[in-house]
Design a protein around this nucleic acid. Structure first.
Length: 505
RNA sequence: CGGAGUGUAGUUCAGCCUGGUAGAACGCUACGUUCGGGACGUAGAAGUCGCUGGUCCGAAUCCAGUCACUCCGACCA
């Protein structure tokens, strides 16, 4: 066990341990903010690259809008202001003056600026200028940016005051088209989470009280963490004409009539990295899905005697060169030779904690035999954890092996998800008994711990208070509904709607 | 913003009650033996004891103020 604290001992502490031991990020001196380090940011860069491609494939283009939004913009859409008012960073001054050694804000701004918590309002303002006719539509744009929400209880990757994300914003000429866009992008996220992050998700619609402020409908992907809690991994909002009305996005339709446009927005953030950690990491540290690993193969030369150095290094360089022209997931394989002047054992362990998918150890023996020692991260500690292989065989297999590792990771997480959605809880009494326990690590992906419940919900306003008291949330209303009637798990009243109940991050 | 706690070496902490020249472990540096599942020996570098003021011959230690951080609540991609 490379982690000081195991998942079983203390899950939240284990999480922090993984983040720091894998050297992914650390708390900044700037309160509530994080410093993303090479391995953590490298994963984000991979997420960006893979997702950006999908966003572009679906017809969107990248734009960039300012991070400062005039305060008045938030006054326009009532729900939206309410939703974000409590967590906004407000810029009120434009300079500092030195008063007897103390720097003080000076020159108050005529109108305070908000550091964007999300960009609907300022982008809608541009949309209003750009849209005149139905021929101008749709506008399909995306932006990669940082946003600020003044959180009081930050946790690295999961909830930080500043975080990085992508936010898509689109305008359409019809409601139907905008709704389709919302669902389409949710599917892009679901597919991305499944195939790039190896993280299975449930999809559905948010209940009224969990919706994005200002949205008609919020769709989401929800993932299950190893302690049975849910993580909202991505959201897609159908905004109807709400933002169009407040920002005056009007176009002339085919009947020569003025009409308010229909908008959508959708986003995923650096929170995905937190999700990947809590979905895949183990008591030895992070396990990075090969598709988003900054490096997929690490080569650690093992040099015992100085006279071996030259031939080992030459062999390692040759192998690295061959590996780099192989492909996995349709891309060149990312290989790193770790030639740092450190003990090879320390280096190997460092890559285990970071969760690099594969580590190849190469010493003089391997040069003699034209072989290598392969360690695959997810099999660490098992009989499959180490393999002595011929270098040529490895080069031929490497792409497929990486893809297999990715598939293994997905299937492990999928098994956990499927096994931990309870559908046999039918009454408020059973429901309360089930959630009486707190969440803890779901050992070996087995059933029986607190996780998700799929059951009925009557949607009465009183249920909101009941949920709050039990610290449970409705994660989503799944798209597939059974259509049956049964007692609401909170009130006992007759209900037909199926929902997913869980504790959440 | 409420409730509790903590600020001493790069890190984790001891020392504080009972005032008297700053400690440990890990990490780091050098050399040697090591290196394929977390090595060891020897030597060494490293701290305005969060900050300001007070008491005292003397303050990491006592007192007051202040700042910061952590945890628990309210809030949340």
């Amino acid at each position: 066990m490379a982690m000081k604290t195991t998942r079983k001992q203390n899950y939240p502490e284990w999480y922090q341990n993984v983040v720091s031991e894998a050297d992914m990020a650390e708390n900044s001196v700037s309160p509530g903010c994080m410093v993303m380090k090479a391995w953590g940011y490298g994963i984000w860069e991979r997420i960006q690259r893979v997702l950006d491609e999908k966003i572009k494939e679906t017809g969107h283009e990248n734009y960039y809008f300012p991070m400062f939004i005039p305060l008045s913009f938030f006054q326009k859409e009532a729900d939206h202001v309410e939703g974000f008012a409590k967590e906004m960073a407000v810029v009120t001054h434009s300079r500092l003056v030195n008063e007897e050694g103390k720097l003080k804000p000076s020159s108050p701004l005529e109108e305070p600026l908000i550091v964007r918590p999300t960009s609907e309002t300022i982008i809608a303002d541009s949309f209003a200028k750009w849209v005149k006719s139905y021929r101008d539509l749709p506008i399909l744009l995306n932006q990669w940016a940082n946003v600020v929400r003044w959180e009081m209880r930050p946790r690295l990757f999961l909830r930080t005051r500043e975080f990085l994300w992508q936010e898509g914003h689109t305008v359409h000429a019809s409601m139907k088209e905008a709704e389709n866009e919302t669902v389409k992008m949710l599917e892009v996220y679901r597919d991305f989470a499944e195939n790039a992050l190896a993280m299975p998700d449930l999809t559905g619609r948010k209940p009224e009280h969990e919706k994005f402020p200002g949205a008609i409908d919020t769709y989401c992907i929800e993932a299950m963490m190893q302690d049975g809690k849910a993580l909202q991994a991505g959201t897609s909002h159908f905004l109807g004409q709400n933002f169009a009305k407040s920002a005056n996005i009007k176009f002339v339709n085919q009947n020569n009539e003025p009409e308010y446009a229909y908008t959508t927005s959708w986003g995923v953030s650096t929170r995905l990295i937190g999700g990947a950690i809590m979905c895949h990491a183990d008591d030895d540290g992070m396990v990075v899905p090969p598709h988003i690993a900054p490096y997929q193969v690490i080569i650690v030369p093992i040099i015992k005697k100085a006279e071996d150095a030259e031939r080992v290094n030459a062999y390692v360089e040759q192998l690295a060169k061959q590996l780099k022209i192989q492909t996995a997931f349709g891309e060149k394989i990312r290989v790193k030779v770790d030639a740092r002047d450190k003990s090879s054992v320390d280096k190997s362990w460092e890559w285990i904690r970071k969760g690099a998918p594969m580590v190849c150890e190469i010493g003089p023996r391997d040069v003699d035999s034209q072989g290598l020692m392969l360690k695959e991260r997810i099999y660490l500690g098992t009989s499959d954890g180490k393999k002595i292989m011929a270098a040529n065989d490895f080069v031929m297999q490497v792409g497929k092996r990486l893809e297999d590792l990715q598939a293994q990771m997905y299937s492990k997480a999928k098994t956990r998800l499927d096994a931990n959605i309870r559908t046999d809880i039918k009454t408020p009494e059973q429901f309360a008994a089930y959630f009486a326990n707190s969440n803890e690590w779901i050992e070996d992906n087995k059933q029986g711990k607190v996780a998700f419940v799929r059951g009925k919900w009557c949607a009465d306003p009183e249920t909101e208070e009941l949920l709050k008291a039990m610290k449970i949330t409705i994660r989503c209303i799944p798209f597939e509904q059974s259509g049956t009637t049964g007692p609401c798990l909170l009130t006992g009243k007759d209900a037909t709607m199926d929902v997913i109940y869980a504790r959440s991050y």
